[in-house]
């Protein structure tokens, strides 16, 4: 009964509006004018950017130059190739866990170096005044790179060491290194636009891990770490990475933070 009353009420209301529209001279508004009014009105309210903004992810993923694509392919080959060669030729003498741990952060550091190489002050100045800022795009790309890097480590582990009995240890150790080194790279990226500190870090990591791998005592010591201890290290490294990411985000979005 109530529903019927409502329907009648709505019908009468619509008829009343129709009569009013007929009696008044209402100008016909063009679509472009409506859109322009909406655009003008939109600047009166504050709205945060959504994480699932298709336009934003289109910029993040789609707008990469040919050079960028080549860079990612090269990174994959270098990483994959190094793991393959070293893993197959020295699998009897070298601990796969140590090997994967030392190589797992390489694509991530390369990514950070590449992003810094591409950054240019005057270009960034224009980009920062756009809807999607380059800092935010770079940050999103870093997270994509983490996913890419993780997939690479998983794939390398599964394909190269299928019969390795300590695959869980291998992943725990590799991901720990990736997150810790990733955190360091992210921190450096957020505090300096120079590539030098990041390059030095990459060098230290590679040379350091090379020395580490060459010494049996060190690999034996690593092997002595229990699985649950490795799991704790991974939890710790993920926490460090998350903390550094949030801090770096605040630094990268300095302008928005100042105003918020």
């Amino acid at each position: 009964m109530n529903k019927m009353k409502n329907t009648d009420g709505q019908r009468l209301f619509e008829e009343k509006i129709a009569r009013m529209l007929k009696s008044e001279c209402v100008p016909e508004i063009e679509q472009s004018e409506i859109e322009a009014t909406c655009r003008a009105a939109s600047s009166h309210y504050v709205q945060k950017q959504k994480i699932l903004d298709a336009g934003f992810w289109r910029v993040v993923v789609y707008f990469r130059s040919v050079g960028d694509a080549l860079f990612y392919i090269a990174s994959t080959f270098i990483f994959g190739g190094a793991v393959s060669v070293l893993g197959m030729s020295t699998s009897h003498t070298m601990d796969p866990t140590a090997l994967m741990t030392s190589l797992s952060p390489v694509p991530l550091i390369s990514f950070a170096l590449h992003e810094l190489h591409n950054s240019d002050r005057s270009t960034a100045e224009i980009e920062k005044t756009c809807k999607y800022t380059p800092d935010r795009i770079c940050f999103a790309r870093l997270w994509l790179c983490i996913i890419f890097n993780s997939a690479l480590v998983l794939l390398a582990g599964v394909t190269l060491f299928p019969h390795y009995g300590f695959v869980v240890r291998l992943y725990l150790s590799s991901f720990s290194a990736m997150f810790l080194v990733g955190a360091a790279a992210l921190f450096l990226m957020s505090v300096t636009s120079s590539r030098l500190p990041l390059s030095i870090m990459m060098l230290i990591w590679l040379v350091g891990s090379g020395f580490f791998l060459a010494d049996d005592k060190h690999t034996a010591a690593t092997a002595a770490i229990s699985t649950w201890q490795l799991a704790l290290i991974l939890v710790f490294s993920v926490a460090v990475f998350a903390a550094v990411s949030m801090n770096a985000a605040r630094r990268l979005y300095k302008t928005e933070r100042r105003a918020a």
Binding site: S43, H44, K48, R258
Partner: peptide, 16 residues
């Protein structure tokens, strides 16, 4: 910008 601090508007301001 239209009465709101531009930093608070963020992307909403930069759109224009």
């Amino acid at each position: 910008w239209n009465g709101t601090e531009i930093g608070k508007l963020g992307a909403r301001y930069r759109e224009h």
